[in-house]
Nucleic acid binder design. Structure first.
Length: 521
RNA sequence: GACCCGUUAGCUCAGUCGGUAGAGCACCUGACUUUUAAUCAGGGAGUCGCUGGUUCGAUCCCAGCACGGGUCACCA
């Protein structure tokens, strides 16, 4: 890690004072050597004919005889010199490929090979062949330096393991730990699979505001920012839900958005302050339609990403094969506490909560206590994909009351690996009922619940024009990506997870400044 | 926010019962024309996270701070 040091430390000019600066100075010195050979250490382009994977795919067709000429480019990860010959491994976007450099073949060009440092980007041209030990290799007769690397790479065997450095310097993580690339490729296959699924069903991908004058659609604290010209406070969105439903009012009857949301809360294994939520809304559909659709969507996405619905995750196998289990929250909690809680009696729920050593905040209603009991007793056991239904009204202000049971709403959540993956409702489209639900939230806010949802007059105005019956779903894409890539934490599937900023500037930069100003020896 | 653990060379780590530190890889020099963690010989590289305290002397003991990791809390 970078260390903070005083900017002007006496003795800096002493030769070899600091190892990193010393190592970088050695590498910088090679820039001049390349120029002396007439080479630009930072090239403009290189014609690539093949990737590493293309050459490996040829298998037995490659023999110890020299074959087709190819041009490959990549970062040098290892160099093994043998006097008048040498080997190097290049890594490109598709993997590793070995290059062989031989003095009597390369002539003057061999001098270039001798200047190559680990970490440099180079381009190589020559015929492919198979070495004595069986590795497919390019026998270089031409070498070009594409970009000089002046910073030493992490160690080749243990690699880069410190999580802080891996996240801060994801660029290094990506070229040292090649499995990290596969994680993000798989995440990309997941999202492109979802897009293909929704596009094929007539859904329109849309983009709605990240900067919102009023945040809503979820229970969370927001990040606050300010627009200078308008002189107004704005919030980074905690959800895009209310905007997508405005579009349903507008007649766009199937819409979806991959929404980057921001919630000003603690961070842990499954929470990053910014995260990606896929939301999709379909007019004329209810929660049951959306359950079917979600089952199909997730299965298709996982197939695209993993090629299986038996998903290995942290030493166990999660079963996503259809149909998924459906669990009533009321039934499941009743079973765990040993008596029926279907009447949502607050006194009885409080007694059970106390029995399991749960201490809901003062003012928590029956729905909140049911939710706590569920989270503690039932949720950890939901490893294979399972839908949970029958949610209390109190915790669902944007959902419609259940047609068959006025105590609960038409809603489901999807769980797997003990994590909440998705949340869906038959959306509330009665403007008066929605206003009443907002007002109940306002009362909760009065009581000190700073996550209660604000009344959104513009959203109510939209509902007053009339919103068709609508089913809506939100899926936590980061969490789904965790499952699809067997990642333990959300940070493993977010390219640049949130960290405290590094204070000051990296040590090496400070030292370079001094060296640059020093007179040449 | 609470508690526990960590921070030593570019990387991965050892170590000092308090006397200013080592290994492997990487780097430099030399040898080596099919190696692949190449090998062999030699060499250089460190305010031991920061600040303060105790001490003749602190990388080591103590306190505070910073950053990171973990557990919990918060988080429908």
């Amino acid at each position: 890690m970078f260390r903070r040091v005083p900017r002007a430390w006496p003795g800096l000019e002493r030769e070899g004072f600091m190892s990193l600066a010393h190592l970088m100075q050695q590498r910088r010195a090679r820039i001049a050597a390349w120029k002396a050979l007439g080479c630009d250490p930072y090239a403009y382009r290189f014609e690539v004919t093949h990737h590493a994977a293309d050459l490996h795919a040829r298998g037995e067709a490659v023999t110890t005889e020299l074959g087709e000429r190819v041009r490959i480019a990549g970062r040098v990860m290892t160099v093994r010199g043998h006097g008048k010959a040498g080997f190097a491994h290049l890594v490109d976007a598709t993997g590793r490929i070995q290059a062989y450099f031989k003095s009597d073949v390369m002539g003057e060009q061999f001098r270039r090979y001798e200047l190559v440092d680990v970490g440099d980007w180079i381009g190589v041209e020559g015929p492919i062949f198979r070495t004595r030990t069986g590795e497919i290799t390019v026998r270089a007769d031409q070498v070009e330096l594409l970009a000089k690397s002046i910073r030493p790479l992490p160690e080749k065997w243990h690699g880069l393991t410190d999580p802080e450095t891996r996240f801060r310097q994801r660029y290094a993580d990506l070229f040292v730990n090649l499995d990290v690339r596969e994680t993000f490729r798989r995440r990309s296959r997941l999202t492109s699979g979802i897009r293909a699924f929704l596009d094929a069903r007539g859904y329109l991908e849309v983009e709605t505001p990240v900067l919102q004058p009023l945040y809503g659609g979820a229970f969370a604290r927001p990040f606050v920012t300010r627009h200078n010209a308008l002189d107004v406070e704005l919030y980074l969105r905690i959800s895009n839900e209310l905007y997508l439903k405005r579009l349903i009012v507008g007649g766009l009857d199937r819409v979806y958005e991959f929404s980057r949301n921001f919630r000003n809360e603690g961070m842990d294994r499954s929470h990053n302050p910014e995260f990606t939520l896929l939301e999709y809304y379909q007019a004329f559909a209810d929660v049951n339609d959306m359950m079917e659709l979600t089952e199909a969507l997730v299965c298709e996405a996982l197939q695209a990403a993993c090629g299986t619905l038996q998903v290995p995750y942290q030493g166990r196998t999660l079963d996503f094969s259809r149909p998924w289990k459906r669990v009533s929250m009321l039934d499941a909690v009743s079973e765990k506490v040993g008596e029926s809680v279907h009447d949502l009696d607050p006194v009885r729920l409080a007694r059970h909560a106390a029995r399991f050593d749960l201490h809901p905040r003062a003012g928590t209603g029956a729905g909140g206590m049911l939710d706590e009991l569920f989270s503690t007793l039932v949720q950890p056991e939901l490893q294979d994909a399972a839908f949970v239904v029958d949610f209390p009204i109190e915790t669902s202000p944007l959902a419609r009351v259940h047609r068959g049971n006025p105590a609960v709403v038409e809603r489901f959540e999807l769980f797997a690996a003990g994590m909440e993956l998705a949340n869906a409702f038959s959306e509330q489209n009665d403007p008066d009922a929605q206003r009443a639900a907002f007002e109940a939230q306002g009362a909760a806010r009065e009581r000190g619940d700073d996550e209660a949802q604000a009344l959104d007059e513009d959203y109510l105005r939209a509902l007053e024009y009339g919103m068709p019956p609508t089913g809506g779903v939100g899926i936590g894409i980061d969490r789904l990506a965790m499952l699809a890539t067997d990642s333990r934490t959300i940070r493993d599937v977010v390219l640049f997870p949130q960290l405290r900023p590094e204070e000051g500037r990296p040590v090496a930069d400070d030292l370079e400044d001094v060296e640059d100003e020093a007179p040449p020896a």
